[in-house]
Simulated scan of single mutants.
Amino acid sequence: MRLSVVGCGYLGAVHAAAMASIGHEVVGIDVDGRKIEALSRVTSRCVVENLDIVRDQLC
Results as ranks from 00 to 15, higher is better:
residue 7 G to R: 02
residue 36 I to N: 00
residue 42 V to L: 02
residue 47 V to K: 11
residue 25 E to D: 15
residue 2 R to D: 11
residue 4 S to N: 13
residue 59 C to L: 09
residue 7 G to Q: 03
residue 54 V to Y: 05
residue 43 T to C: 10
residue 16 A to H: 08
residue 16 A to C: 09
residue 25 E to Y: 07
residue 9 G to E: 01
residue 46 C to I: 05
residue 22 I to R: 13
residue 6 V to S: 08
residue 4 S to W: 02
residue 53 I to S: 02
residue 30 D to L: 03
residue 17 A to E: 02
residue 6 V to K: 06
residue 27 V to I: 13
residue 26 V to C: 06
residue 57 Q to T: 13
residue 45 R to I: 06
residue 39 L to C: 12
residue 55 R to Y: 08
residue 29 I to G: 01
residue 15 H to A: 14
residue 26 V to A: 03
residue 20 A to K: 03
residue 4 S to M: 12
residue 35 K to H: 10
residue 6 V to W: 05
residue 22 I to F: 13
residue 23 G to N: 10
residue 29 I to Q: 04
residue 9 G to A: 06
residue 3 L to E: 07
residue 23 G to I: 07
residue 9 G to D: 02
residue 54 V to T: 04
residue 50 N to R: 07
residue 53 I to P: 00
residue 55 R to H: 13
residue 5 V to S: 09
residue 33 G to Q: 10
residue 45 R to E: 05
residue 17 A to K: 10
residue 33 G to V: 09
residue 57 Q to P: 04
residue 52 D to M: 00
residue 2 R to C: 02
residue 49 E to Q: 14
residue 49 E to D: 14
residue 42 V to T: 11
residue 43 T to N: 11
residue 47 V to F: 11
residue 18 A to N: 14
residue 40 S to W: 09
residue 19 M to Q: 04
residue 8 C to S: 15
residue 18 A to V: 11
